[in-house]
Amino acid sequence: MEFKVPTMAELMAAGEEPEILFWVGCAGSYDERAQKITRDICKILHHVGLKYAVLGTEESCTGDPAKRAGNEFLFQMQAMTNIEVLNAYNIKKIVTGCPHCFNTIKNEYPGLGGTYEVIHHTQLIQELINEGKLKAEGGESFKGKKITYHDPCYLGRANGVYEAPRKALEVLDADLVEMKRCKANGLCCGAGGAQMFKEPEKGKKDVNIERIEEALSTEPQFIAAGCPFCMTMLNDGVKLKDKEQEVKVLDIAEITARANGL
């Protein structure tokens, strides 16, 4: 990367505090595909000049997959350890790169002593667009391109965030098409509830195939995602359908970064 990503430890050593903490998440940290999204979120933060930091190696799993799988012990162990770190750094506002981290920190951490203002990166992008700090210029043009957006369950139904990601796409002047099952009726990609980490039960087909068929039926050039797990599932679906040349699955952060030439 062309700039150094600041960590909380460094900022603290310099006696500074960030405006916002970027919570990267496990997928964003380790998954190769999701790492690109993570870097693009940093590029956006850097580009608009927002004072931010990441926890780096001090970050740990929020406990989300453990909680959805029924291991409340492990979840609370993770949560309390993370809350200790966050509170020690006096964190007030957090942006996450993952709807699962977003949901967990926003909704389930307050009851365990961790209360922060938590937003998802698509909400941050929308805020930056509204404030005029972020436009769609200086980069790749998406004008007239056909884009369909897949609602992540833990952003949409779980927390009612439907507009922010769409606003982030509207600024592109692209041709936005909705799938039949969208917003509150959106169909899961198949990865939620710890499904990401196991083989599916036997059935007629995989959930991500059902979803990708619906996405492809809108004949898009881009499928927009907002979650690293959805990204994996949708990408696998596109590959299985042999449509990698025609259709690209991109995160809203990647689209934004591209549109701004970052």
Partner: peptide, 21 residues
């Protein structure tokens, strides 16, 4: 999650490696 702080078998020490790509 219990041992590495992530649902996959990666070392916590490598968690920030993404910033070098």
């Amino acid at each position: 999650v219990e041992n590495n702080g992530a649902p996959w078998k990666y070392s916590p020490a490598d968690r920030f490696n993404w910033s070098e790509g």
